[in-house]
Write a protein that binds this DNA or RNA. Structure first.
Length: 111
DNA sequence: TCAGTGACTGACC
DNA sequence: GGGTCAGCCACTG
């Protein structure tokens, strides 16, 4: 497409998040960087805020750069995000993913 | 139409 | 080594 609509950014974010393998997590910054907008990590967060209308988007697999579940309150409860991650085999301590670096998935790494 | 806000990040002091 | 600041862009009032 010759022109990138603002909403396309959201759709691309969703697309990247959907590619995150089960049992892995990624970061807002990684997604933003992958889309060529590393400085716009907040936009990824905003996209996640709007991702509620996209059930296919595993937003719980997106954390900040240190593996902290900063967006957990947006899941309808402070423990929902943690529970979802634990069901995928993660261990959450103090709102942080244990061994975050080991489960970190970089967009484009699956290829 | 304008200004403020937000699930972040990197750089600077 | 730790805290503060600015930047990015879309949505809402």
């Amino acid at each position: 497409m010759p022109q990138t609509k603002p909403t396309d950014f959201f759709l691309r974010v969703y697309e990247v998040v959907r590619q995150v393998p089960e049992g892995r997590v990624t970061t807002y910054g990684a997604i933003a960087k992958y889309l060529g907008m590393q400085r716009s990590a907040r936009l990824v967060g905003w996209a996640m805020n709007a991702a509620h209308s996209h059930p296919d988007v595993p937003a719980h697999r997106v954390v900040n750069r240190i593996g902290m579940l900063t967006g957990k309150h947006h899941f309808g409860g402070p423990r929902v995000m943690q529970q979802l991650l634990e069901e995928e085999g993660h261990q959450i301590i103090d709102d942080q993913v244990v061994g975050f670096e080991s489960v970190f998935w970089k967009p484009g790494d699956d290829v």
